[in-house]
Design a protein around this nucleic acid. Structure first.
Length: 312
RNA sequence: GGUGCCAUAGCCAAGUGGUAAGGCAUAGGUCUGCAAAACCUUGAUCCCCGGUUCAAAUCCGGGUGGCACCU
């Protein structure tokens, strides 16, 4: 069984930790192709803010799953897993190694653990109705309702986390099954991948934050403001508008705040995002952590990483 | 040199006699179809010294620092 699994190398980690350059170097060393695991780099035009790898950075290594969707397209984990699996299988069938790169924890874990998503069952009207009820009756009312049909799920949710409570109710509404049942069934199939995952991190948090701050400055030099202005004038879709880098500059375009204030906030939001990414990867004990501030130079780190990959 | 105002957690800030609201940040965490999102948890004895009082961040005196105005 295990022999038939597809080997998969994953390089994950917080933003600005150096995933892109490491992945390219790894691909070069082992004959790999990069597969992005990033919820925002999938969009066309959102280049600077999402730090999409440039042609120069890619150094001729094929990068899949980047910049193919329209900014107004609503994307989801389910779609990601479906397509990413196909891409990885294709790379493998051509005798190359797939190297997954990215920082979207939900996409990563759903793909690697082969979460099975059932056919689409969203009901936006029902969601909207529940949202209005939450406003009128209070969030607790929705959670109480969920507790009546699925006490297990309700126990895990905080009433203020309205989005999740609504989703749980929505699943019951559209499928007749509780989210607990459905989630239980989603893990039935074993993963087709034999994954070796590496998470980039910094021993000194400030080291990472300095890199983040610096990178935002570079994005600004590269024209982030103009890119953001374009999306301010042509608003993004439901998924894409969540990207960090545009919404933080809107108060400046609206004349409510100075550019400097917005930039400070943008840096702060990026730092907070990096922290959240880390909590996601830290809880997966299979992921090996590599600390970027342990190495004097990139090549030393690359050697250490390749050692982990070869050993596994 | 004089007069007035102010001094509470990293920042903003409420509280005017009974043992310190709140917001932001920070740190940690949750995560199954919007996830770069959403959500949870997380800290102080109130500039210093002395006094009044059963009791002071809160009143009085002095000091230090800042701001404003005046000569």
């Amino acid at each position: 069984m295990a022999e038939s699994k597809i080997p998969l190398i994953a390089i994950v980690g917080p933003t600005a930790s150096g995933k892109t350059s490491l992945a390219v170097a790894v691909c070069k060393a082992i004959g790999g192709e990069a597969v992005s695991c990033d919820s925002m780099q999938i969009y066309k035009g959102m280049d600077i803010a999402t730090a999409k790898p440039t042609a120069e950075e890619m150094q001729g290594i094929p990068h899949h799953f980047i910049g193919f969707a329209e900014p107004d397209e609503v994307f989801s984990v389910a779609k990601y897993c479906e397509s990413a699996k196909e891409i990885i299988e294709d790379i493998h069938s051509r005798g190359k190694k797939a190297v997954l790169v990215g920082g979207t924890g939900l996409y990563y874990s759903s793909l690697v653990d082969n979460i099975e998503f059932l056919p689409e069952e969203t009901d936006f009207e029902y969601r909207e109705m529940l949202r209005k009820r939450a406003e009128a009756e209070g969030a607790q009312a929705l959670l109480d309702e969920l507790a009546a049909i699925d006490p297990e799920a309700a126990a895990k949710l905080h009433p203020n986390n309205i989005g999740r409570v609504i989703r749980a109710l929505e699943i019951y509404h559209t499928t007749g099954k509780t989210i607990t049942d459905q989630n239980g069934q989603s893990r039935n199939e074993a993963s087709p991948f034999e994954t070796v995952a590496i998470c980039l991190d910094a021993r000194d948090r400030q080291f990472l934050y300095d890199r983040i701050n610096k990178r935002v400055d570079i994005m600004l030099e590269n024209g982030l403001v103009d890119e953001a202005r374009a999306f301010y004038e042509n608003p993004l879709g439901r998924t894409a508008k969540q990207a960090i880098g545009y919404k933080e500059l809107n108060p400046f375009f609206a004349g409510e705040k100075t550019l400097e204030e917005c930039i400070e906030n943008l840096k702060m939001q990026t730092r907070r995002y990096a922290k959240r990414q880390l909590t996601w990867f830290r809880r997966d004990e299979r992921i090996k952590f590599v600390y970027i501030d342990d190495y004097a130079c990139f090549d030393d780190m690359l050697k250490a990483v390749l050692k982990i990959i070869v050993k596994e």
